[in-house]
Design a protein around this nucleic acid. Sequence first.
RNA 1: GUCCCCAUCGUCUAGAGGCCUAGGACACUAGGUUUUCAUCCUAGUAACCGGGGUUCGAAUCCCCGUGGGGACGCCA
Length: 542
Amino acid sequence: MSKLRVRFAPSPTGNVHIGNIRVAIFNWLFARNQNGEFLLRVEDTDRERSTESAVEALLDVMDWLGLDHDGEILYQSSRLDDHRAAAESLVNSGCAIRKHSKDSGGQPVIFLLPYECSKIPFVRTKGEAGLAAAPGKEISITRSGAKFSCIENGKEIEKSCSLAGLYRLRILGRDGETLFDLDKRIASMSPADEIKISGAQRIEYVSREVFYHDHVKGELAKPLDSMKDFVIVRSDGSPVFHLANVCDDIAQDINFIVRGDDHVENTFRHVFLFHALGHQPPRYAHLPMIVNQAGKPYSKRDGDAYVGDFRKKGFLPQALFNHLALLGWSPGDDREKMGRDEMAGAFSLERVKSSPGKFDIQKLISMNGLYIAEMPPDAFAKLAIEFTSEWPEGKPSPDEFAKIAALMQSRTKTLAQAAEWKYFFHAPHEINPKDLEKALSRPGSRDALLSFAGSLATLDVSDKAIIEAQIRASEGSSGLQKGGLNPALRLLLTGAKSGPPIEDIIHILGAEKSAERIKPRRPVAATKKNDHRAAEFLNKYS
RNA sequence: GUCCCCAUCGUCUAGAGGCCUAGGACACUAGGUUUUCAUCCUAGUAACCGGGGUUCGAAUCCCCGUGGGGACGCCA
């Protein structure tokens, strides 16, 4: 077998979303596993919607995730001439026609599914088909398709399909006489011809289907009589996706296409295109889609599904990569947290599921926490500090920040949580009076607090054990239980109800700042009527 | 409407006819450790969509329902 060549071929018409990038991840894993090549093609032919910034965003995101591609990027827009030439050759070889158009505009080029398929390996005959024609309905036949009505299960159904779907079509009248025989007419039909037949009773033809082996879904087949000929060049002369996509896959020598589920139906058409262009179709694998919490597919409209947003929310690329790879694939054992290379080593298409998966943000968060936990502290601090840029006072000093980061790392699931560490640098804006009242409600609390605040002036805060001992001492002398002072101290110091050990906080804050925060002061305004009592209490707690 | 695909705990998944009393992970609950929180440890709740077959035996194979998704563009 020749070297595996796969590609990721996004259209840059908006920010890349996670469903999109997951396709890239699977292609990358597959290529790396097989020692193949992973190519990138930007399908930017939709000029109206493609933007340069979207291309930049795409490249940026791929770089962030470590999805390195082989070779140069192919921009589809640069291959217009080749696409047109391909269309021209298809017209010349009779595989496509220029549609006759009454409008003054140009003529679109329509690819005709081949009528004679005996030498095409991916088409097979299923058998004779017979349909009852709907009475009184006219049948219309042109080179690019037939339209007719028939009766199925007592219901009248309108059908239209390519002539290739109606192999050896015969239309029979009331007395069984042949009104039309496609075999005799097809060779002489010109694109402008339209044949109308009335009085049909019965429609008979040979039913065939196109099939291919999908490396995820197994064998897939589609009856030709459910397919239509399709436009490959628009009336304005621009090539349609199907043509451009196939031409570029040929140009890039792609021999395995791994893409989203939504292309399954396109593949039935693309294999004909490959064949008509003189090439063997590549192999295919279609990945199941991923859906959002509501069970609906992600679309570019899903505001929260952009890959860039995950970065902004403080997710690590390793975690997102890992989590996305595990959506629809598993190594087959109980491994879940796996690095890129480990996953590439274990990857196989056979182990890709064929059912859609729901994206679970909780699991991503958990995995992100795992990756954060194993980071070297300085690396963690360096990444986390970026998330303090929203602070009005500006980013803290890296050295100070690193101490806090080390303290918080095991408590952190996403880097964005670093924005909440503000209290280490600035006194908390507000303390919930109710919480404080509760924290101070035990008898002796106030005395213990004052005692500890007073001791801070002479306390050696460079030693956490000393700080802790002093807290215990203040508790003891005021008749408070061990740890009874913690809630109040924490609240006054940080404004939060939970967090790292008090002594760690005081150690970092220093004696002066700590005393400042604990000291009775700070009137707290009652914001609600029922907070009034608590506010009163606080204001006079000295 | 037509065609195609899919279906195991709430979620991601393991499962290739007997290793299944259906395993793991996230989430959740309880307990332990940490005088809070987090980490860590232990335990628990929780699933084969329904109905028919095939078979000595079905989560696994077949059929029919049901539910979900996709495709039917001169979008990609």
